[in-house]
């Protein structure tokens, strides 16, 4: 556990120095802060548009953070930092889980800052305050966790670019896995049961349409994300143990 925390903190420290993430936060805040202009553009649907934009921006921030995981692990392999660290009494699982936690920690902080920022801007510019946005933020966090676990899984056996691309592809497919559930071929059924169901975590449509979101749905979605991520990480650990670090 101690070793895992060391790797987690180091990963977080490294990612904090990554200016692109600051740029992302700044860009997102500028976009949301421009909310007062939406009134002129949307003909009175300013609030809905801001909910939509806020939710989409949270998701963008979460996914971009998740994509850092495969790139960061690949960088460690390229720089031979992995060899140096793993030649010391550090387990491969601890290394991999430490990396995962470091990225998730950063993603959590990013999402927290954005959520607070968006809620404040929503409140001041539209005089609206809906707890539904917090529910969307929580499921976006769960999406980020699951996408990060996916990135870690692919990075455990693939080079950086294929790992990052595959993370994106599986995320996109995962948005429509529910359609596969009703499909007839057995292969589609199998894919539904194996692929991550990211659409379960997407509550932005409900938010945009002003529908109330039951907390039970949020809890089920988050539980699903945590369990699915644990399975992905277990698989990643097994594959990384078998990998030759040449």
């Amino acid at each position: 556990m101690e070793d895992m925390i060391v790797i987690c903190r180091t990963t977080y420290g490294r990612l904090l120095r990554n200016r692109s993430l600051y740029f992302l936060l700044l860009a997102v805040l500028v976009l949301v802060a421009a909310g007062s202009l939406y009134a002129d553009l949307t003909g009175g649907r300013q609030k809905e548009l801001m909910y939509d934009a806020g939710g989409a921006l949270l998701l963008l921030a979460g996914l971009l953070t998740a994509l850092v995981a495969p790139l960061d692990i690949a960088r460690d392999l390229r720089e031979k930092t992995v060899m140096t660290l793993l030649s010391k009494p550090l387990g491969r699982s601890q290394y991999l889980l430490g990396k995962f936690l470091g990225v998730v920690w950063l993603g959590t902080l990013n999402l927290l800052i954005l959520t607070i920022g968006i809620l404040v801007i929503l409140h001041t510019s539209t005089d609206a305050w809906r707890a539904d946005f917090i529910q969307v933020a929580l499921t976006t966090w769960a999406t980020m966790v699951m996408a990060t676990a996916l990135g870690v899984l692919f990075a455990s056996f693939l080079p950086e670019i294929p790992a990052a691309l595959l993370t994106i592809v599986v995320y996109v497919i995962g948005q429509s896995t529910e359609k596969l559930a009703s499909a007839k071929p057995a292969l589609a059924q199998l894919l539904f049961s194996v692929l991550p169901n990211f659409s379960l975590l997407d509550l932005k449509t409900e938010l945009g349409n002003g529908l109330s979101i039951p907390w039970a749905l949020v809890i089920i979605a988050m539980g699903y994300a945590v369990i699915y991520s644990a399975v992905l990480l277990s698989l990643a650990t097994i594959l990384f143990h078998r990998r030759d670090l040449a």
Binding site: T10, E79, K80, T81, T84, L85, P89, L90
Partner: peptide, 30 residues
């Protein structure tokens, strides 16, 4: 591995860290 030291071929290590910070990380892992 607790009693072994290793230097890989053509290393580049954590380039974003300062020398003492990198050694501190290694010390923590040790």
């Amino acid at each position: 591995r607790e009693r072994v030291g290793f230097l890989p071929e053509d290393p580049s290590f954590c380039s974003y860290l300062k020398a003492a910070e990198f050694l501190d990380l290694c010390g923590k892992v040790l």
